[in-house]
């Protein structure tokens, strides 16, 4: 049987998701031997730029017009498009200030000029522009998750997405709850699991790096919870936006907060 042709690509992001695939050291050679690799920037300078692909893995967000053109071109030549990592799914940290300030404002704040040197777009995930078949969350992705997803595909099956929160994995591992016991600002209750609750397992609060659970995360209650624990609204809003800047409920919530804060300073209900 002919090996599936794959390409692994980066848009705007840190490249950490490609790196996680390379980090699959023990399985990497076996895994890659199943494929005919046409592009894998972080692994090889070899590249075929026009070949049809069976699977394209794309990491990074669409943050420039160049990204968008690249993405469309990739989509046109692949059968299955996999969004690899938070950036590719919903923009990740690049989207933190979306809808809070204009691109011009951001340029001024960061570079001190208003001129848009980079043809910047408001950072979004791939699905805002093209059809995405599979999403593998994480910042960065979990290497075992991507491994299992790829195995599933090779086995002729679609990988199953995780849509339950980190709390589940804390309980399965019997990790003490850092919210209940330590009043820490843990985002576990609204964050997509799959990390095996790595941070709470180390006694740290979840910062939400796998993104809020789509259509499920109760961000309003997270805000409630953290404010009851004494955290101020700006802190909470920033925390929620860190990995959830494009998440509808968080945008609405933090939008109204901004208004609230703007109107009466720190509100303490």
């Amino acid at each position: 049987m002919e090996k599936p042709r794959i390409g692994i690509f980066s848009l705007t992001g840190c490249g950490g998701d490609q790196l996680m695939i390379l980090n699959l050291e023990d399985e990497l050679l076996d895994l890659l031997s199943h494929f005919d690799i046409k592009s894998f920037q972080e692994a090889s300078s070899y590249e075929e730029t026009t070949t049809e692909l069976d699977i394209a893995f794309v990491e990074g967000s669409v943050s420039t017009k160049t990204d968008l053109e690249r993405l469309k071109e990739i989509r046109n030549r692949c059968k299955l498009l996999i969004a690899l990592g938070d950036c590719a799914i919903d923009g990740c940290v690049q989207a933190m200030r979306n809808q809070q300030m204009t691109i011009a404002e951001k340029m001024r704040k960061v570079y001190g000029v208003e001129e848009d040197y980079y043809d910047v777009l408001e950072p979004k995930g791939l699905a805002a522009h093209v059809k995405v078949d599979i999403k593998i969350p994480g910042c960065p992705i979990e290497k075992t998750e991507v491994l299992h997803a790829i195995i599933s595909l090779l086995h002729g099956d679609m990988p199953e997405a995780i849509d339950y929160p980190v709390c589940v994995e804390c309980k399965l591992n019997e990790y003490p709850c850092v919210i209940i016991e330590k009043d820490m600002p843990c985002l576990g209750p609204i964050t997509t699991a799959g990390c095996d609750a790595r941070c709470p397992g180390l006694g740290l609060d979840c910062i939400g790096c796998r993104g809020p659970i789509k259509d499920e995360a109760n961000a309003a209650e997270e805000l409630n919870l953290l404010s009851e624990k004494g955290f101020d609204f700006e802190y909470i809003a920033n925390r929620l936006r860190f990995f959830g800047g494009n998440f509808e409920e968080i945008v609405k919530l933090t939008g109204s907060l901004k208004k609230k804060i703007g109107e009466g300073g720190q509100t303490d209900e």
Binding site: P165, C167, K171, L172, P189, N218, E221, N224
Partner: peptide, 13 residues
């Protein structure tokens, strides 16, 4: 339900 996270903790414990 507005308050609930749907996190499953109640079941798991």
């Amino acid at each position: 339900a507005d308050k609930c996270f749907g996190c499953g903790t109640c079941n798991l414990v």
